[in-house]
Amino acid sequence: MHVRGLVDGQEFLVKHANGLANGVSELQHLFPAGSNVEDSDALPVIWEKPEEFAAAIDKAVAATQKFVAAAESGDKEAISSAFREVGGSCRGCHDTFRVPQD
């Protein structure tokens, strides 16, 4: 709602942007070798191509850090375009490494 400009409140945005960036920075630790146990939406390609997976996470980390900076600046255009980049990095990863959701 904040990024879409539907609701005002920059302090919340900064807080959530930081939360997002912190969460994403943990992603690299969540899929260690041997953790591909059954009943998961994580695709085996995560462990088959660990370098590609790490690169996709790096992209998300960079995008969320940029989003934090944009949120702090308060510039609506910058916030919107930085969040678009965050979304692109989320989709980029889900596209390749997650079971399609219906």
Binding site: R84, D95, Q101
Partner: peptide, 12 residues
């Protein structure tokens, strides 16, 4: 941008 209302992002 591909974000669902719950904040998840679509893949596939």
């Amino acid at each position: 941008i591909g974000m669902l209302p719950d904040g998840d992002f679509t893949g596939g």
